[in-house]
């Protein structure tokens, strides 16, 4: 005879383990949300691309297989690697010069009221001038193609590094400043022991932004003011109405820029181990 009390289903011995595994799966899914979102967007773009490629003329909108075929052609050409090398040298060279100058400029701005008085309006003025004006001025002012590209990259990216450095130095906690000053370092020592390490997270975010700009700007300048490099190759595809080629070169540029950003991220992780551990 069974009582009126509802019988509880006995829990299977493996049940807690199963629910634990489900929880872990749900948590994993949650942590993969960004990846999932990216995958959905990429698939949607590819589908749309294939769809429009089927209806529009191939010289305006090539299909995915055609773009891949063109990309394969591009990467088998020796000249492609020469163009990538030229662009890389320009980006890294221009970035190095602009970053060094920008960091020094930002530190000076933060540490000298007199310098800041002149520097801030100057930076505001430089940033206010349209990028195209700088390219055209570069073409007029410099005969040498490399100088044109470097000038353009420098003038557009150094204010980013300078302003981030300035903010970083200004954000150094007063308590740490007072403690370090009480140890009586020279100005160089103060920069070495406190100011630069404390401002480095700000400087780094400025550098990453500046590197990303450098890549885009170098290609833009190559297209307009130089005859070599990825930018010039892209310009050529435009003149030949070769959209598949343009997509191929764009993909190469994305890979190059992503690799550079990845390298900077690796450096950032290594240098800011203490910061990452703090967050954990």
């Amino acid at each position: 005879m069974t009582s009126g009390i509802p019988q509880r289903t006995p829990t299977a011995p493996g049940a807690p383990l199963v629910s634990h595994a489900v929880n872990r799966y749900v948590r994993w899914l949650g942590s993969q949300r960004d990846t999932l979102g990216t995958a959905i967007v990429v698939i949607a773009v590819l589908l749309a691309w294939q769809f429009f490629g089927g209806y529009l003329p191939k010289y305006i909108f090539p299909t995915i297989p055609l773009a891949i075929e063109k990309f394969e052609q591009i990467i088998t050409l020796k000249g492609t690697y020469v163009a990538i090398g030229q662009t890389l040298v320009r980006i890294l060279g221009g970035f190095a010069v602009s970053a060094s100058f920008g960091i020094a400029f930002g530190i000076l701005m933060a540490m000298s009221t007199q310098f800041n008085f002149i520097a801030r309006p100057l930076i505001r003025l430089i940033m206010g001038v349209p990028a195209l004006t700088w390219v055209l001025l570069g073409v007029i002012w410099f005969k040498n193609m490399e100088l044109r590209v470097w000038f353009f990259m420098f003038i557009v990216t150094f204010p980013i590094t300078a302003l981030n450095t300035y903010d970083g130095v200004r954000a150094v906690p007063f308590e740490l400043y007072q403690m370090t000053r009480s140890l009586r370092p020279t100005t160089a020592g103060l920069l070495r022991f406190l100011i630069i390490p404390a401002a480095t997270p700000f400087i780094f975010s400025g550098l990453r932004l500046s590197l990303s700009f450098s890549g885009r700007i170098a290609v833009f300048a190559e297209a307009i003011a130089a005859g070599t490099g990825i930018g010039a190759e892209m310009m050529l595809t435009n003149q030949l109405f070769d959209v598949a080629g343009l997509i191929g070169w764009t993909f190469i540029l994305i890979v190059v820029l992503s690799l550079m950003d990845g390298a900077l991220e690796v450096l950032e992780r290594r240098w800011f181990r203490w910061r990452r551990e703090m967050k954990d």
């Binding site: 308590e175 740490l176 007072q178 403690m179 370090t180 022991f193 406190l194 390490p197 404390a198 480095t200 800011f272 203490w274 910061r275 703090m278």
Partner: peptide, 10 residues
């Protein structure tokens, strides 16, 4: 020695 430790976190 100050009120807070003022150690440099890096």
């Amino acid at each position: 020695v100050f009120q807070t430790d003022r150690l440099l976190p890096w």
